[in-house]
Write a protein that binds this DNA or RNA. Sequence first.
DNA 1: ATGCGTGCAAACGATTTGCAGCCGG
DNA 2: CCGGCTGCAAATCGTTTGCACGCAT
Lengths: 136, 136
Amino acid sequence: MSLRMTRQREVVASLLESVEGFHSAQELYEMLLSDGERIGLATVYRTLQLFSEHELVDVMRNADGESVYRSCQAAGRHHHHLLCRKCSKTIEIDGPTVEQWALQVGARHGFTDIEHTIELYGICSNCRATAGANTG
Amino acid sequence: MSLRMTRQREVVASLLESVEGFHSAQELYEMLLSDGERIGLATVYRTLQLFSEHELVDVMRNADGESVYRSCQAAGRHHHHLLCRKCSKTIEIDGPTVEQWALQVGARHGFTDIEHTIELYGICSNCRATAGANTG
DNA sequence: ATGCGTGCAAACGATTTGCAGCCGG
DNA sequence: CCGGCTGCAAATCGTTTGCACGCAT
């Protein structure tokens, strides 16, 4: 690829691999700052967009409609996510079932080129155990 | 309910029933204006929020992350949507399959209180027939 | 009469963009 | 050296909010 590898892009890529779960551009930006890195917010946005275009990161929208990113181990591989509403723990989901379902539903209605957005939200077992104890 | 019924709220509700598919607050606002109605954009937003809280309208997010609304015939009934990327035709989907799938996947990972966001996008048969002919 | 609802515009938060200077290849 | 990359801040865009007034109840 013709991507010029700069310090900024390296640290963004590096950060993405060192953190768990999904994070917004703003969050990543702040992490970088407190990490002592010199980088602009716009650059973080541009880098994240670039990475996602090249399928180097996994992108999804959180409940607020904001874009959140994560290093994509399963790059290029289609999958979805199950995320805890309390602790934000995220689990990657492989759903041949839904994939099939989506295609079938689409086909049944005469649609082609089916794509889909699927996100699952719930309370993980850990948070369930401490339910009500961490409201904040 | 303790909702005061005002002219503005009536016209918003009325408009929602007279149009097909999903529309953003801004779109609805402009429709009202060109309809000769006197109403503020903020009121449209507030009204739409209110309606959705009372489950009087169906809300979803479009691909851009914006909230779009539609009068909800199947009020309170959980369902999803299949929408054409070309003409925006929207089809309401009942998916016991996915509902089950979502619950199972959640349970398998120890999650409870499972909720989900599912949207399907595709090209409808009609647009498929005229494919490439209406780019813009 | 009371207080919720409204309109306007300013505030807001996320994201994008213009432009001049920097640096990787 | 050249052109893509960066940083900053201003510009956008959708949405929310503060405040004074109007209207439904």
